[in-house]
């Protein structure tokens, strides 16, 4: 479970103090698929970075599975990130000269030797993301959609509590984006994988159970697909 309590984030831009997040409170339950939406500069990607422990809030607290990220030292936070969080980025961030299999195994290598059960997990993931037969292919020889599939498998190889995805379909055309979103939905439903996805795209956000609507560093509203006025509110927000 993710708990974001009274989180603020400030940056200095020259002499000027910029407040990107202005007191965010949020709870995301295990197994939820949540989308974070908002205009550029509204703070949605900053929030994802803070949840991912890639940066620390100026004030407030973020807990994942009851463990506070701020209370960990840098080393502990790095290990926690590797073991409990998976990341998917818009530009895939694969190691181009490594093969599909090597890219997916990379987080395990960082944690020690690959064991038999890890190898099984890699093989299963390759099959689940639809890349059977591509195991030995170098990442830079893959299409954008295939690279994102590798990135998803790599993010999931350590069975993270949370998968954090920052505009995972931002570089892909609609048809390929659809395949990636279907894949995320399948992992969410089949493996109860918690997913937090930042997107500016309503066609992607609609895959999530709840949508967090951000504006000017605060949560304007959280809408759930179970709400009666779900579509209506989204329309109002977008207009």
């Amino acid at each position: 479970m993710i708990r974001v309590h009274n989180v603020t984030k400030e940056y200095m831009q020259g002499q000027e103090k910029i407040q990107v997040l202005k007191g965010v409170n949020l709870q995301i339950n295990e197994g939820e698929f949540v989308a974070v939406m908002g205009p550029s500069g509204s703070g949605k990607s900053t929030l994802l970075q803070l949840i991912g422990g890639l940066d620390l809030p100026t004030s407030g607290d973020i807990q994942i599975n009851q463990q506070s990220l701020q209370e960990m030292n840098e080393k502990k936070r790095t290990i926690f990130r590797r073991r409990h969080l998976g990341f998917v980025f818009q530009n895939y961030q694969l190691l181009p000269t490594l093969t599909v299999e090597e890219n997916i195994a990379f987080p395990i290598h960082a944690d020690g030797k690959i064991r038999k059960r890890n190898q099984r997990s890699i093989t299963n993931l390759i099959s689940e993301v639809g890349l059977k037969g591509f195991e030995k292919k170098r990442a830079n020889l893959l299409s954008g959609g295939q690279q994102q599939r590798v990135a998803i498998a790599r993010a999931l190889v350590n069975h993270p509590s949370v998968l954090l995805a920052d505009e995972p379909t931002g570089n892909l055309d609609r048809t390929i984006a659809e395949d990636i979103l279907r894949l995320l939905l399948t992992f969410n439903r089949k493996h109860n994988q918690t997913i937090v996805m930042v997107t500016h795209d309503i066609f992607a956000a609609g895959f999530a159970d709840r949508i967090i609507l951000f504006r000017d560093g605060v949560i304007e509203k959280i809408i759930s697909r179970k709400d009666e006025d779900y579509a209506k509110y989204m329309a109002h927000f977008m207009a």
């Binding site: 309503i202 609609g206 697909r225």
Partner: peptide, 24 residues
């Protein structure tokens, strides 16, 4: 145009919701 956009977004959200159910 704003109102038409609002209507389209509403339809998109409802249809995407239906779409995910059909996928599952």
């Amino acid at each position: 145009l704003t109102q038409q956009k609002e209507l389209i977004v509403k339809e998109v959200m409802e249809l995407t919701k239906l779409k995910t159910e059909l996928i599952l």
